[in-house]
Design a protein around this nucleic acid. Structure first.
Length: 831
RNA sequence: GCGGAAGUGGCGGAAUUGGCAGACGCGCCAGCCUUAGGAGCUGGUGGCCGAAAGGCCGUAGGGGUUCGAGUCCCUUCUUCCGCACCA
């Protein structure tokens, strides 16, 4: 009698896999179909918790399943090693970012190995290594050459106390994370941008091609993020000034209802407008205060509506109305034209602004049906389309028609035109930080901004830099690094001290896995062409927008560069749910972590894997339960005991199904049928739905059935029993691979599960002979009848009507209809 | 605020195509076994009425479509996630 000892079994089989190199992918293998399955690369925060493990366990189950199905599987892992937390550690604990990061990587790698994930470790990458980030720089230079990388002024969060730029994360309720009495200000500085908006249409138009392979919700979120909106620009003349203000609107049909113009505090023409107006000083103070607030979108959107009248007026080009010009905090300088027409009756934000500042509300669109709107009685804006009124020659038109006609008339009158805008902004990649990829340009007094030549890459990050979290960018304080010569004129120059957003690293890393040690190119085109596109990408829904849009953008740029032959990197995306503890996302900062290593030590990693797959379908959030995992541990113990009990006498027997053996006993038929029914549904779950929780439930039911059929040494031949147990073990193996290997060996096999094929499902062996069919009367179940599986519709109907429970209920009633769903149900409708 | 999801027993969840609501697991209850253990085994477990047979109610709330709705439609509510410098 052996005991299930997960620690012993797990290290034993991990050693075997490692020695035999069974998880190595083979580049360009044309004999097998390739399958590239990838989990999003982790940030090495130091702790791997069960939230991470869920992600990798899903990917690993799929990778192992696909190998059993005969695919050449690429399943790599690496580290997203640059980023803010390493600098925070340096500030708080005086550890060098590289040292901290590498220590974390070593720790996390040990955990990944402890869990036995089937990674091809030979392809491991770490983005903070020069041989990786060198290619970030290379890509940046290619974009610079094509005008896709450029500089412009933009606003950042600034802590006046630290004298440094803050990340959004470091802004807490409008205050600096280090100084909770110091309000964060906004400051405008020159930064590098990548022109993602040049690909806005491309990114949007490819979305239909991702349909089916990507989660619906991710595609909808991306569409909204790109935010294409068709509308119109309209020019308003400013009264007694030789200038105009342009607004962007999607609802030009409501323009007769505009009762003000509202412009952003950061609008370029604001200075000019305020020239010589009364009370200028007070206005400047208000503008300054509006501009100084946090740059977070959510902060801006939820702020109280605030504004002031500039003292100037504009003229509505359609109605000729004179409209006050206001400055408002809800108008964004970066979106559209930085100015809006304020139509309180037909836009909710305008409505609120008008209520606050007592601006006129003028109804110009009436609902096509229902109660007429009355400006005095409105409690909220009417934003639907409708029929125009009080709109001059356009009165009576429907909104849709009016939008087309008014845009065309604006264009004819040279005071506007139809236009499409996007909500998507260019990607700001500059970071005034140390622990990131140096942007490979120099600033020369003579030649301006000059690219570092390819053959001088990588521009290495200097080591031994003191990180204080205060003052200017840390790189500016390293003179021997900062001061260099201009590649063009040879004169003195200064290096760019901004580093890149770490999203750059993660936008193309999956290509590097195909050819991770290449020192002359980011990757070999032919090898990447073999593996790409990624067949299955798996990650958290929190990456639904940024990472995945940036990755798609990079792919399109790489396609234009001729590096890849496709324009979308990922065929199928799976967004797994979060792992929650006490109702909140597991995270180090909240302190609600269930450490992966603790689980492995307490229960073994197979139990940890099984539980994360069993507790919820993978796309849903999972609430961690310490009691729940006990159930998974019990199940594996139970299975181990079952096979330990029967294994010894089956070891030397050749397996054979009952059907192949000829005369089968009812018990054999039952067991074989149960195996094939389970196999059918588990295979389907793996191929299509990925509902591992139901797969495991089915396997549990099968084990329960086997135990219920004890004694299994009676009325079952050892050959049949062995085949049933083998099927069971193979089905479980992608999810709990170590115990599966052990059980496989206990059944007498010298070769590993890792070299086995997925068992073949046979319809004829799965078929039931008898089925139970519920019979309803007026939609309520009144009886259940047992009939032969292939029973004819008429016979089923007759059996149902004559059933002893059903008969009395329908006797003497008028039978309206009888619904027969073959094999499913009978419903007798009576009156 | 904008955008995206999700609401089913005491709990995690199942019901794949509109067809038996609650599979499987946790917890709980009762019993068995025992070298007394947080082990194993057997049975029970949505609510209400009933001795039972059985009946009625029940998938966040309200309304609708249908022979039939957890599933489809309308509407209200609640919770969670993202919002561009966290990764």
């Amino acid at each position: 009698m052996a005991e299930y000892d997960p620690q012993r079994i797990e290290s034993k089989w991990q050693r075997v896999w490692e020695e035999k190199g069974v998880f190595r992918a083979s580049d360009g293998d044309s004999a097998r179909q390739k399958y590239y399955v990838l989990e999003m690369l982790p940030y090495p925060s130091g702790t791997l918790h069960m939230g991470h493990m869920r992600n990798y366990t899903i990917g690993d189950a799929v990778a192992r399943f696909k190998r059993m199905r005969g695919y050449n599987v690429l399943h790599p892992i690496g580290w997203d090693a640059f980023g803010l937390p390493a600098e925070n550690a340096a500030i708080k604990r005086g550890i060098a970012p590289r040292e901290w990061t590498n220590a974390n990587i070593a720790q996390m790698k040990a955990v990944c190995r402890r869990f036995g994930f089937s990674y091809d470790w030979q392809r491991e990458i770490s983005t903070c290594e020069p041989d990786y980030y060198r290619w970030n720089q290379w890509f940046f230079l290619r974009m610079l050459e094509r005008g896709l990388a450029y500089r412009k002024r933009s606003r950042v969060n600034w802590c006046p106390q630290c004298q440094t730029v803050l990340a959004n994360e470091q802004v807490i309720d409008g205050f600096c994370w280090q100084h909770d009495a110091t309000p964060v200000e906004a400051k405008e500085i020159e930064q590098w941008f990548l022109a993602t908006t040049k690909f806005a249409d491309d990114l949007l138009e490819s979305i239909p091609r991702l349909e089916g392979g990507w989660p619906e919700r991710v595609l909808r979120m991306q569409e909204n993020w790109i935010g294409k909106s068709r509308g119109a620009r309209v020019k308003f003349a400013v009264e007694s000034a030789n200038t105009t203000l342009e607004v962007f609107t999607t609802r030009i049909d409501t323009i007769y209802g505009a009762t003000a113009l509202v412009i952003a505090a950061g609008h370029a023409k604001l200075d000019e407008l305020l020239e010589g107006v009364q009370g200028r000083a007070a206005m400047d103070a208000q503008i300054k205060s509006m501009l100084q607030r946090s740059t977070k979108a959510a902060d801006i959107a939820t702020a109280e509506k605030e504004g002031f009248f500039t003292g100037r007026f504009a003229v509505n080009p359609f109605s000729g109305d004179k409209m006050p010009i206001w400055v408002g905090n809800f108008v964004l300088a970066e979106y559209g034209t930085g100015a809006v027409m304020c139509v309180p009756a037909h836009d909710q934000r305008d409505f609120e602004f008008a209520k606050e500042y007592r601006l006129a509300i003028k109804v110009v669109v009436q609902p096509v049906s229902g109660e007429r709107l009355n400006a005095e009685r409105m409690a909220e804006a009417y934003t639907e389309y409708g029929r125009l009124e009080n709109s001059g020659e356009y009165s009576g038109l429907g909104s849709e028609e009016a939008i087309g006609k008014m845009a065309a008339d604006a264009e004819a009158g040279s005071f506007g035109r139809a236009e499409t805008t996007y909500r998507l902004k260019d990607w700001g990649v500059s970071r005034q930080r140390y622990w990131g990829t140096p942007i490979p340009v120099v600033h020369c007094a003579i030649d301006g901004i000059v690219a570092v030549p390819d053959n001088e890459l990588p521009v290495r990050l200097p080591e031994n830099v003191t990180i204080t979290g205060q003052g200017q960018s840390p790189l500016a304080s390293v003179p021997e690094w900062l001061n260099t010569t201009c590649p063009k004129c040879g004169g003195p120059a200064r290096r760019e001290t901004d580093t890149m957003d770490t999203f750059v690293d993660s936008s193309w890393y999956f290509y590097r896995y195909t050819d991770p040690r290449n020192s002359s190119a980011p990757f070999d085109k032919a090898i990447a062409a073999y593996w790409f596109p990624i067949d299955q990408y798996i990650g958290g829904v929190e990456h639904a927008i940024l990472h995945l849009i940036y990755s798609r953008f990079f792919c399109k740029v790489m396609n234009d560069l001729g590096l890849v032959n496709h324009r979308e990197p990922v065929t199928r995306l799976f967004s797994q749910g979060m792992v929650l503890k006490d109702g909140a996302k597991m995270s180090k900062s909240k302190g609600n972590i269930v450490g992966a290593i603790d689980i492995a030590e307490k229960y073994g990693c197979d139990t940890g894997r099984l539980y994360t797959l069993f507790a919820a379908p993978p796309e849903k959030d999972l609430e961690w339960s310490e009691q729940g995992i006990e159930g998974s541990a019990r199940f594996l113990n139970r299975l181990f005991r079952l096979i330990d009990k029967h294994g010894p006498r089956l070891k030397t027997v050749a397996s054979q199904t009952a059907a192949n053996a000829g005369a089968a006993t009812p018990k054999e038929k039952l067991l074989v049928r149960r195996l094939h029914q389970t196999l059918k549904r588990v295979t389907e779950d793996f191929e299509t739905r990925w509902h591992f929780n139901t797969s495991i439930a089915l396997i549990m039911e099968m084990v329960n059935e086997l135990v219920a059929q004890e004694p299994l040494d009676q009325n079952v031949t050892p050959a049949t029993l062995k085949s049933v147990l083998e099927g069971l073990v193979l089905m479980l193996s992608p999810m709990a691979p170590h115990i599966a290997e052990e059980l496989w060996e206990m059944l007498g096999h010298g070769d590993g599960v890792y070299s086995q094929k997925w068992p073949r499902y046979r319809e004829d062996l799965a078929r039931e002979e008898q089925i139970e069919v519920p019979v309803q009367v007026n939609g309520r179940v009144r009886a259940r009848i047992t009939v032969a599986a292939g029973v004819a519709e008429e016979d089923l109907k007759a059996r149902a009507m004559s059933d002893s429970h059903v008969g009395p209920l329908i006797a003497g009633k008028q039978i309206v209809k009888v619904v027969v769903v073959p094999g499913k149900l009978v419903n007798v409708v009576v009156r």
